[in-house]
Design a protein around this nucleic acid. Structure first.
Lengths: 214, 214
DNA sequence: AAATGTGAAGTTGTTCACAGCT
DNA sequence: AGCTGTGAACAACTTCACATTT
């Protein structure tokens, strides 16, 4: 993933720290399932794949949560991170562009578990025959604005093809969306107060390919 | 995306520069399609979503390619970047884990266009009924090592579920894979000379959600 | 005049070293 | 003794300022 046009909210906390918070949160959930009550920064850092000093530094942005000589309480730390990330309440999300990838994401159960609900999907041709009928309502583009307004949607997953991506983005932004997870392989231009996270699978592969020596 | 356990190959060139090279490459391809012969760093940077100084600095790691007062030749710069990224030859890739997401990636035409070919897919249950029959051979896990050896595969896309991800990774690494694009939501542990690029969609959403103000 | 190329300055993020609790 | 919390040192990356070329 790479990000474009940052919004400098809560500017003191590094972007990467927030990113790692999500990782810590998942690791803590696993530790908790395994019945662990406390964990040291060393141990948690290991499963999260970072250095222990980095983990401790990351946490200091939010306060002090550990007990010296002992470590952190798994449950308490998990709750703190959830609160910070705002993953305690379910967030409505729309998905635009129901091709292969969009369809796969609609049936991906991972989102719900993490506090997001795809409440509707939109496509230029909602009636086209697809491999599978999604569980979510599949609507035409003309209903986009109404649903976003009515449901107070602020986030969108964009899986349309490159040529229409900017135009759809403009509509999303106008309708009130301020966060876009973009799978289209191009750089979206958006106002400063809108945030775009890009996921470009071809670039990830290309990047791997370079570093493992072409 | 985030990266774990870097391999410091060609160490002088920043990781992020390589990442942006992929973006520039796509922008140049578009400009070329539109019939442009030359482009200034200012103009290219704009479509790539970066500052022009950054683009120029990125390019200096590889040499001098521009003409002062004029700009860059689109075709020449594109060729140079392709050569650097090693995207001129087709790379064989395997995909492991044919669930919803894996199936979608198998039909994603974007990879081939960018120089990667998924030559085979593997699943613990290749005969299970799926929404769609992939174009690539869908094989059982017992054939994994043989195919990797025979075809000289060095890269893998990992779309298995979290519990089996580490075990599958160990097999991939043992068989000779040195680059893994990991979609499983956990941190893989691999030897130093193996590179993992992680794509975690839930984390991307969570991250957006934080920055747009939970 | 217009644009590149680049050393130096600035900014951001990471790691060290160790003081300070329990 | 063991482990957290953190200022200070360090490293990586970005931007500036401007010399240089066409």
């Amino acid at each position: 993933m790479f990000r474009s046009l940052k919004k400098p909210d809560r500017p003191e906390i590094p972007r990467k720290t927030i990113y790692r918070l999500s990782i810590y949160s998942r690791c803590l959930a696993r530790l908790r399932e395994n019945g662990l009550r406390t964990v040291s920064s060393e141990a948690l850092a290991k499963v999260a794949g970072v250095k222990s000093t980095q983990l401790r530094k990351d946490l200091t942005y939010f306060g002090q949560f550990g007990t010296r000589g002992l470590g952190y309480e798994v449950e308490e730390l998990f709750q703190m991170i959830s609160a910070q990330l705002g993953t305690k309440s379910l967030q409505p999300v729309v998905l635009v562009g129901v091709g292969n990838l969009g369809l796969a994401l609609l049936s991906y159960r991972g989102f719900e578990k993490e506090g997001f609900e795809i409440i509707a999907a939109f496509d230029i041709d909602p009636l086209r025959k697809r491999d599978k009928k999604p569980d979510q309502p599949l609507l035409g583009m003309d209903e986009l604005e109404a649903i976003i307004h009515d449901r107070g949607v602020r986030m969108a997953i964009l899986t349309v093809d490159a040529p229409s991506a900017q135009e759809v983005t403009n509509r999303l932004v106008k309708a009130g969306v301020t966060g876009i997870l973009n799978f289209a392989p191009l750089v979206l231009h958006v106002p400063e107060d809108v945030m775009v996270n890009n996921v470009n699978l071809a670039i990830e592969l290309e990047n791997l390919s370079y570093f493992i020596q072409g």
